[in-house]
C-alpha cells in the first residue's frame, strides 16, 4: 500500500489522544490488534478459531497477576502475557490443526472453555470478580504510566497512550510483515488449495501451527495491553462472547485484508460505546448491521473498498 497512507495513519494515531477520549482510543487499539491477529489465521490461513478469547483473556490474567502480585514492570508483564498466549496457542493449535473446518472451530471453542473455567476457579484469578486494581506501574522502572499531561485544561494519560500505541504498531507491524513474507505466501497457497500445497511438498500442519502460535501470541499482546489500560482482567475477556466478537469485527471490516479487521474493530467498539443508552437493544442493532453487511458486501467494507479501488488494502 501507498507509503503516504501509512504515514497519514501514523500521524492520526499520534494525534488521536488530543481529539478523542484517550481511554476509548486505547480500547480501539487493543481490539484492532486483537482482530488483526485473528485475521492472520482466518484471512491468511483459512482457519476459523472460535476460541481466541482464551489467548486475549488468558494473557490479560497472566499479565495482571504478574504485575499486581509479583511487581513486574508493565513492559515485562506484557511480554510475559504475550509469551504465555503463544505457548497456550502452541498447545491448542497442536490439538486443533489436526481437524478441518467446523471441527477445528469446535476444538478451539472447547479448549477455550477450559481456559474460561480455569479463569473462574484458579486461586489467583479473583473468581467472578476478576483481577481488579492492577497497577500500571513504571515503564522500564522509570516512566510512570499513570502520569497525566494537562493540555488545554484537560489531563491526558499520554504516557500510557503512547506505550499502547507503540505496542499496537509493533504487533501490527509483525502481522503485516508475516503476511508479506515468504511464509505468508505459502500460507496463502494453503488457504487457496491445501491438497495442492501438500503435493508441492509443503508440510501444511507445520505452517498452520506457526501461524496459530503467531496469531495467539499477538492476540495475547492485545489482551495484556487491555489489562493495563483498564487495570482489570475479567471473565468477559476469556468468554466465548469475546471470541465471537472478534469474528464479527474481522468479517465486518474485511477478512483477508490488512486494514479490514482494525476498521471492523473500530466500528464495533464505537457502536457499542455510542449505543449504550439503548440498553440491551444494542445486540439487536449490531446483529442487524452484521446481517446487512454480510448480505450486501460480503468482503467486508474494506474488502469492498479495495475492490472498487482495484488494490489490496
Amino acid at each position: 500500500m501507498n507509503r503516504f497512507v501509512w504515514l497519514a495513519l501514523l500521524a492520526l494515531g499520534l494525534l488521536a489522544p488530543f481529539a478523542v477520549y484517550p481511554v476509548f482510543m486505547m480500547k480501539l487499539l487493543c481490539f484492532a490488534l486483537f482482530a488483526a491477529a485473528f485475521n492472520l489465521l482466518l484471512g491468511y490461513t483459512g482457519l476459523l478459531s472460535f476460541g481466541h478469547a482464551a489467548f486475549f483473556g488468558g494473557a490479560a490474567y497472566v499479565t495482571g497477576h504478574l504485575v499486581k502480585n509479583l511487581g513486574l514492570t508493565p513492559e515485562l508483564g506484557v511480554l510475559a502475557g504475550t509469551l504465555f498466549a503463544g505457548l497456550l496457542g502452541y498447545l491448542v493449535g497442536s490439538l486443533a490443526i489436526r481437524r478441518q473446518g467446523i471441527y477445528f472451530a469446535m476444538v478451539t471453542l472447547a479448549l477455550a472453555q477450559i481456559v474460561y473455567f480455569l479463569a473462574l476457579k484458579l486461586p489467583f484469578t479473583g473468581g467472578e470478580d476478576g483481577l481488579q486494581g492492577i497497577p500500571r506501574g513504571l515503564l522500564f522502572g522509570v516512566i510512570d504510566l499513570n502520569r497525566h499531561v494537562t493540555v488545554g485544561g484537560t489531563p491526558l494519560p499520554l504516557a500510557l497512550y503512547y506505550f499502547t500505541f507503540a505496542l499496537f504498531c509493533l504487533g501490527f507491524g509483525i502481522i503485516y510483515r508475516a503476511i508479506h513474507s515468504p511464509f505468508g505466501q505459502v500460507l496463502k497457497a494453503i488457504r487457496e488449495n491445501e491438497p495442492r500445497a501438500r503435493s508441492l511438498g509443503y508440510k501444511v500442519e507445520r505452517f498452520k501451527l506457526i501461524a496459530f502460535v503467531l496469531s495467539s501470541a499477538l492476540a495475547g499482546m492485545a489482551g495484556a495491553m487491555k489489562c493495563l489500560i483498564f487495570q482489570l482482567a475479567s471473565l468477559t475477556d476469556v468468554s466465548w462472547h469475546t471470541s465471537g466478537e472478534v469474528v464479527l469485527m474481522t468479517l465486518l471490516g474485511g477478512v483477508g485484508t490488512v486494514l479490514g479487521p482494525a476498521a471492523g474493530a473500530f466500528t464495533v467498539v464505537t457502536l457499542q460505546s455510542q449505543l449504550t443508552m439503548v440498553g440491551p437493544w444494542i445486540t439487536v442493532i449490531i446483529g442487524g448491521i452484521f446481517v446487512v453487511c454480510v448480505l450486501v458486501f460480503r468482503r467486508g467494507f474494506v474488502g469492498e473498498l479495495g475492490r472498487l479501488l482495484r488494490r489490496s488494502l
Binding site: R177, P182, F183, Q185, E192, L200, G201
Partner: peptide, 28 residues
C-alpha cells in the same frame, strides 16, 4: 491456487527449494 496470479502460482513451487518458506520476518 485460484486467488493468486499465475506468476505467484509457479513461484510458490519454486520457493520450496529456497528454504525461506518458514521465514515470516522477511519481506516477500
Amino acid at each position: 491456487f485460484p486467488g493468486l496470479t499465475p506468476l505467484e502460482n509457479v513461484r510458490v513451487a519454486l520457493q520450496r527449494a529456497t528454504n525461506t518458506s518458514y521465514q515470516f520476518w522477511k519481506s516477500d
